[in-house]
Design a protein around this nucleic acid. Sequence first.
DNA 1: TTGTAAGCGTTATCAG
DNA 2: CTGATAACGCTTACAA
Lengths: 337, 337
Amino acid sequence: MTTMLEVAKRAGVSKATVSRVLSGNGYVSQETKDRVFQAIAESGYRPNLLARNLATKRTQTLGLVVTNTLYHGVYFSELLFNAARMTEEKGRQLILADGKHSAEEEREAIQYLLDMRCDAIIIYPRFLSVEEMDEIIDRHEQPIVVLNRRLRRNASHSVWSDHKASSQAAVSRLIEMGHREIAFITGSLDSPTGGERLSGYRAALAQHNIPLRDELVVEGRWTPASGAAAVSTLLTRQVAFSALVASNDDMAIGAIKQLHESNIAAPQAVSVIGFDDVAIAPFIVPSLSSVRIPVTEMIQETISRLIFMLDGGDFTFRQSFPGELILRGSVVPGPYA
Amino acid sequence: MTTMLEVAKRAGVSKATVSRVLSGNGYVSQETKDRVFQAIAESGYRPNLLARNLATKRTQTLGLVVTNTLYHGVYFSELLFNAARMTEEKGRQLILADGKHSAEEEREAIQYLLDMRCDAIIIYPRFLSVEEMDEIIDRHEQPIVVLNRRLRRNASHSVWSDHKASSQAAVSRLIEMGHREIAFITGSLDSPTGGERLSGYRAALAQHNIPLRDELVVEGRWTPASGAAAVSTLLTRQVAFSALVASNDDMAIGAIKQLHESNIAAPQAVSVIGFDDVAIAPFIVPSLSSVRIPVTEMIQETISRLIFMLDGGDFTFRQSFPGELILRGSVVPGPYA
DNA sequence: TTGTAAGCGTTATCAG
DNA sequence: CTGATAACGCTTACAA
């Protein structure tokens, strides 16, 4: 690989001059500039970013940590796509690190990005506790923002959507439509998001003085198959329900499929609600209602904050990203089972 | 940030010794090893990978270039997930670069990865020609493998699936089942993959002496919506068909939806075939048949080859990755329109 | 078994 | 406007 020194020799100048030409810092006569560019073209020179970054102590990269349990599906694509796009708009590069499927691996992924000297880091945690992330933020000088968690201490370092409130609103809406028996399929309950959505369900019932019935709640594992299985469980429990809320779209899709196969009218009803995904699901299952989480906006906010912490400049802090309830299809009030 | 020098001082040794302890190269007495580890723990030292990589001229990273037109959907998630997993299994890190949506931007993405000194590079091209990629491979000493294209000159640097053959086989299968009027929704025809699948369709017809009828072919743009639109076009053309093949699953899903809304029996039939995706689609649309492209296996082969080019070792060259036709549902022979 | 010192390819400070 | 030269933080002969 040809280095800056070779370019310098070929152009009959010093390394320093070549560096100036490339960076645009400092004065260089037009004449030598031309010679340098010529030499660069002739030699096919390419700067070594490792060397550059080592010298400047800046890498122009943002790191992103995501568990690979999130890698599947539309939500992740959307997240990644937007993160990459906005990062590049700010003249930086996104580096993705896999948080795999444990707290320890999430820590390692963060550590890798720090060792690579990313200028700033975005964490979309699955296993790390908020306490630990608060500590991590305190321990490091690099700007770090946490997505989808509400931090206590470093509030300005987190961007989240209030899952409990969204869930409560969605369920309340069903209640106001006349539903009293509402089934709920939770996500994995070791995930905060899963827990928050469940407590939103509980809160909505309480708010309307409807007693909570445990037999209407089934635990799923975020997948379509587990949503279908949950419906089977409900049916074998012989418990009647006129509406169903699932903690994400994938499970809602599985649930609708299972209801359909059991010859139950739900797929045509508005009364099945999911969360998160927005792309293909409603296209295929027009009856599926959903609470859309504004990923794009959240990523936008996240990256703006990081860039602000790095470069300063103008800054608009946006506190809340409420989920948006999108209702489709028409109401079918009757009990399904 | 604390550096290796500070650790060395604290442990009362030289930088070199610390380096030896960390890398495991060269002899160090157990005693000093212990002192060094202690000093590392006390100081919270972390190696600077930029410096290390600059010195070793190795980064332990593989670069991956993908157009962001691919970012949406299951196929991409699957690709990325497997690439990341396998890369890490080989003790490396995957760096993703966005090829955006033009040849120029694909070139820039490749260049960035080269400038970052990735040890090797995987290109999943959308706009670059095979000729240019052959040149790129020739020009650089880093191992480069191209996914989903058949290179002429650097055959061992490409991993692909024969889309034309898969498409031809799928269409032939329909013909053997008794279908004569088979509609075809192409992908964007500026994409080689789109072109290959279409020519497979033509070849199958020719092979069975069925005349090609242009009115049975509609151009889509890979999206569910364009699949639905294509069906509308077919219906307004008033042309009868008893089977339909779409160049990918997304369009097939859109097509099925549109057929369904037009009260046509297709959704229950085996006779709609898509390509690529495998995760959610058939779960939601059980009748959808599909040619599954073995992404996982292809990524596996790609990474093995790269690692072989880097480290040597054992190596199994796998030439062909045929698509796998997965038929679902039952045959409905009658014409749909 | 350990230390010294010369790189790795840039940037950045200071003279000139 | 340009050139030396000292960093940046690490690895790796070569000596000792």
